[in-house]
Design a binder for these strands. Structure first.
Lengths: 221, 221
DNA sequence: CTTCTCACAATCGTATACGATCTGTAAATT
DNA sequence: AATTTACAGATCGTATACGATTGTGAGAAG
């Protein structure tokens, strides 16, 4: 018996962290909601120490906010915050693509094309956002900059669900598909500037859609 | 008697966090060095709980690394990591400048010019890096994107000291001064593309200097 | 009926306590 | 002599305990 001891060393902290993060990103927890340490601890069958570590980590991610002597609350993402994050995403993804293109091999193009084909074939709206995510990951991954890819991934996880709430349903399949195809073609051609500006316009369009959605909601109040 | 109660609420955690962060960024703690929780706790006159919270926060910043059951160590920044961070800095600062220029007022130009004048007048090498930091902050601040500025600031704090170790002494005053002047002039002209590509070249030059320094060190081993 | 005061419950932030695991050293075995 | 085993000290990760602070509701004053 190996007795590999699958027991995670600092598992308690990490489990709480992941659970809270998942719930916050999924939107199950409303912004401003108080996160009582004792409750969370009991819920996960641990004590407060790992809970506080998890909350501190989430605080660093700006997912929760500590108020002195009043504990942690779920940080609500304002409209401005969301638009700011989209601007940052433009910066990060465009740079990544710029660095990625010179490194792309034929197999990268094929992989990206497969994702687009799957996209085309999928009637399921639920899958679109996942396929969109995979396409972006696919063309950016060759950049070889792990920290950059990690940053992009973090922002995607925070921005993605919020954007999906507003535009994915409305935007349809046609426009993103056309833009993705054009980006991939420019990558194939090694046309760095064309590809980057196509990607930039692609994300800027999303940003404008989000801004429009926000505008409409604010007007109709 | 106001009895404002200057006592910080969660001061213990924050003091430890800032002290450790300062030491790590300043390089007083070598990469790989073990950070013993009990020692740090005794040193700051607190218990382990705030220490662990501080370490978790530093872990999120990739400044320390937790090894299961073996505690935390100072994360050493590899040469590749440093070059990666400079690439990210290019992405972030160029985007910030692009967003900033349309928002710049005359007073912004004046402020930036003052920094450059101070630069010119300062014979003190120690001040150059600080003035360089202030110039960058100055022209990027009008972008109005708080999260972006915060990200840029984080990277500056991590990259700055490491870059300074290698290039500041060698590069002199003339080249940065010329590049800064040109960037500011393009900003004044509202020439966004010129300003951004000048800034990009400015940072890329730094990256090349760092890469050259690394190369030389590796060859002579 | 409204507003202020005050005590009590709830919660936070941190210290202390304790089992589990790791590391280093010295004896024991091959 | 080299490698393995055994044991002790150190350290980690977490649970429990406790003072401090803040919100809250009942009762008194206006």
């Amino acid at each position: 018996m190996p007795k590999v001891s699958t027991d995670d060393p600092s598992a308690a902290f990490f489990n709480v962290y992941q659970a809270l993060r998942k719930d916050i990103l999924a939107g199950s927890l409303e912004g401003g909601q108080a996160l009582r340490q004792d409750d969370i601890a009991r819920l996960h069958g641990v004590s407060k120490v790992p809970v506080r570590e998890a909350l501190r980590r989430l605080e660093m991610e700006s997912l929760v906010e500590f108020r002195p002597r009043r504990g942690a609350i779920v940080r609500s993402v304002s409209d401005d915050d969301l638009l700011e994050m989209l601007d940052i995403r433009i910066a990060l993804e465009c740079r990544a693509l710029e660095l990625a293109i010179p490194n792309m091999a034929e197999s990268d193009f094929e992989l990206a094309q497969e994702v687009l084909d799957e996209y085309q074939a999928s009637p399921d709206k639920e899958l679109w956002s996942e396929l969109n995510r995979r396409f972006h990951a696919c063309i950016l991954e060759p950049c070889g900059n792990r920290q950059l890819l990690s940053l992009i991934n973090d922002f995607e996880q925070r921005v993605g669900p919020l954007v999906r709430l507003r535009v994915t349903e409305a935007t349809g399949l046609e426009r993103p598909m056309r833009e993705h195809t054009q980006i991939l073609q420019s990558c194939r051609d090694g046309a760095v500037n064309d590809a980057v500006s196509a990607l930039r316009i692609h994300i800027e369009t999303t940003k404008r859609e989000v801004a429009a959605s926000i505008r409409r909601r604010n007007i109709s109040r």
